[in-house]
């Protein structure tokens, strides 16, 4: 059922040329160089420390590694991180 719904959504998105983050409930991650990360559409903050920040999204987690990380601003579905970025990793569920 869920799989079918997902397929429909993907198809509508493609057909109407809609941005995929809106259609598929995926996070939109914008980085400004390696100093800022702007994450929209997340569903939760899982872990937060100077070196690692993990964020939950619909289908998994995003891991951001770096040093001196901090949250500049946190709203309901938005997150603005600052610090020295090293990597952004996606850890989908079920892996």
């Amino acid at each position: 059922m869920a799989k079918w719904q997902q397929n429909i959504r993907a198809w509508i998105g493609r057909y109407f040329d809609l941005p995929s983050d809106v259609m598929l409930d995926l996070p939109r991650i914008t980085t400004i160089g390696s100093i800022h990360v702007y994450i929209e559409n997340h569903t939760g903050l899982l872990h937060f420390s100077d070196n690692e920040i993990r964020i939950q999204y619909k289908k998994g987690q995003v891991r951001i590694l770096g040093s001196g990380l901090g949250i500049k601003m946190m709203l309901k579905e938005e997150l603005l991180l600052e610090g020295e970025l090293k990597s952004v990793e996606f850890l989908p569920d079920g892996q």
């Binding site: 939760g44 937060f48 949250i71 500049k72 946190m74 309901k76």
Partner: peptide, 27 residues
């Protein structure tokens, strides 16, 4: 339970800024 707490707060409409970890369970 700092992270869940912060998340719950933002869910209620809080606006948090300049979050920095200063210890294992201190922010």
């Amino acid at each position: 339970l700092i992270e869940p707490f912060l998340h719950a707060c933002t869910r209620q409409g809080c606006q948090l800024s300049r979050v920095r970890r200063i210890g294992d369970d201190e922010v």
